[in-house]
Amino acid sequence: MSGAKPLHPGLFTWPNANPSLIGSRCLDCGEHAFPSQGSCRACSGQNTQNAELGNTGTLWTWTIQSFMPKTPYHTDETPETFRPYGVGYVELPCGLKVESRLRENTPDALRIGMPMALEIISVRKDEQGDDLVTFQFCAAEEAH
């Protein structure tokens, strides 16, 4: 995806051949957060720093968005071209669970505990015709 820009800065390492989520880690209590934040939800401190959270995990829970959401949803889709998408929480190696769109969009393809991997997808094109991208997770290859 050359010319692709993150829809929002600082959510994942970019540009990068193997992008990783970026969160924050509290230097006082060790708790992680995503997206990164300057204050800690666990201990109320303000001593945090950015941390790469990786790009793999396991599926903690899931659902399927079966109809096209109203605003603030903003993609290039129309009700005719809309395709249902999965939504889930993926438990990362650090234990943090990150909410994400999922590529899989049928109940048969989703199972709590299944291995997941990060991928980058286009949300829509900007005025210059460049892709605005975000992260989602998909089933990791069984081979991994």
């Binding site: 829809l7 929002h8 829970t61 903003h74 949300v123």
Partner: peptide, 25 residues
């Protein structure tokens, strides 16, 4: 931030589905 809503994560119905899904499991 806006990305959360624009990418389709800002629906209470999703949360309710995911919470009971995990609870059923």
């Amino acid at each position: 931030d806006d990305w959360y809503g624009e990418t389709g994560l800002m629906l209470t119905t999703q949360y309710f589905g995911m919470k009971i899904q995990r609870y059923m499991h």
